[in-house]
Design a protein around this nucleic acid. Sequence first.
DNA 1: TTGTTGACTTGACACTGTGTCAATTGACGC
DNA 2: GCGTCAATTGACACAGTGTCAAGTCAACAA
Lengths: 195, 195
Amino acid sequence: MSSEIVETRIRILEATVRMLEEHGGRGVRMGDIAKESGISRQAVYLHFASRAELLDATTKYRDEILDLDRRLAPSRAAKSGVERLALYIEFWGNYIPEIYGVAKALLLAQDTDEAAAAAWQARMLVMRDGCRAAIDALHSDGRLAPGWTQKRATDVLWTMLLVPNWENLTGECGWSNQQYVRWMKTVAERTFVKE
Amino acid sequence: MSSEIVETRIRILEATVRMLEEHGGRGVRMGDIAKESGISRQAVYLHFASRAELLDATTKYRDEILDLDRRLAPSRAAKSGVERLALYIEFWGNYIPEIYGVAKALLLAQDTDEAAAAAWQARMLVMRDGCRAAIDALHSDGRLAPGWTQKRATDVLWTMLLVPNWENLTGECGWSNQQYVRWMKTVAERTFVKE
DNA sequence: TTGTTGACTTGACACTGTGTCAATTGACGC
DNA sequence: GCGTCAATTGACACAGTGTCAAGTCAACAA
C-alpha cells in the first residue's frame, strides 16, 4: 500500500527533525538518519534523491507540523504598522528556536550543495515577504522614519532578522530568546518608526 | 638559507590570498593553492600543518599587508563617542570587501574544522573590542540611548556588523559598499545615540 | 672530491561522507 | 504460484584532506 510509503517517508522526516534538533544541525549524516528511522541508508535514498532534498522536505514538514500559518496570523491581523512590525519580530523570534536544527543543517549544506543553497534562499525570501509587509504597513500609516525607502528598510529589517544574528546573540552573547525578541523590537522601532 | 623558507611561505600566502579573493573564498583546494604557488601540494604541508592553519596565517598576513593598525587609527583618535562609532563602522565597512575572500573561506571552514572555527572566533572577538570601545566612548559622553547597557549595546552593534550581514546587503540586496557604510551608520546612530 | 643537510617532489594510501548500482529478500494481492 | 514493490546488503566511484616513504637536487663543508 502507498500508505506504507508515506509512513516510511514520515518516519524519515521525523527522525531527521529529531536528529537535527538534538545535534544543532551539525554532523548528522544520511546513515545516522537511516539508523534513527530504523531502515537502511539506501532506503532513505528511495524516498529522497539527495541530502538537500531531504533537508528541504524536512523544513516544509516542520512548517506544517508547527502550523506556520497559524503563527503568522497575529502579525497579519495587526491593526497598525507599528504593531505589525512588533508582532512579526515576535513571531519570527519565537519560531527560529523551533526550527533551528533543521535550518542550521540547510544553512551549512549551502556551502557544498547548490540545491540546498536554493532551498534556503527560497525560504529566506518568504521570510523577507513578512518583513516587506511590515515595512509597507508602517509606510501606509505614515510612520516609516524619514530617509528610508521601503525597499531599503525591508533590506535592513530582513538582514537584521537573519538566523546567524539570532545565533550570535543567543549563542556567543548569551542572550535568552526573550531578550532577543525584546531587543530586536527595540532596535527595529528606533530604526524604522517615526517619532 | 632560511630566507628561502620565508620566501616560499610568503609565496604560498600570496597565492592563497589571490585564489581566495578571485573565487570569493569558495572551492579553493590545497592543490589549487599549491599549483598557484608553483610547488607541490605536499610542500604546502611543509609550511602549514593544515588548511585551517594556512587560512589563519593568511588572514594575519592580510591584516599586515593592509596595515590594519593604520586603518584603525582614525576611529581610535575620534574626539567623541558619536564620531568614534561612525568612524569604526566606516573602517570596518571598507575593510570587509578587502578581506572578504579569505574571511569567507575561514567562515566556511568553520563547519567542518574546529581550528578554523577557533581562528574565526578569535578574529571576531577582536572586532568586538572595537565595537565595545565605540559604545564605551558613547557612554562616557552620556550619549548612549536610554535602555541600553554597554554590554547589550555592544552585543547588538557587534552582531549588526558581522560579515553575513554585509554579505546579504551587498549580495542579495544589491547594495554598493558605500550604501552599506552609510546605512549601517544610520541604523547605529538611530539605535544607540541619544536624541 | 665526497658527504651531509634540508627543501621539495612523486606517488601511494587512509579516511570520511555522498551518492550509485546490482543482486537479493520477503510480504502482499491476485 | 506469480508479479510487484519496498527494503536490504555490499561493493564501488568520487572528492578532498592529510600522512607516509622514497627519492631528487642544490648548497655548503671537510
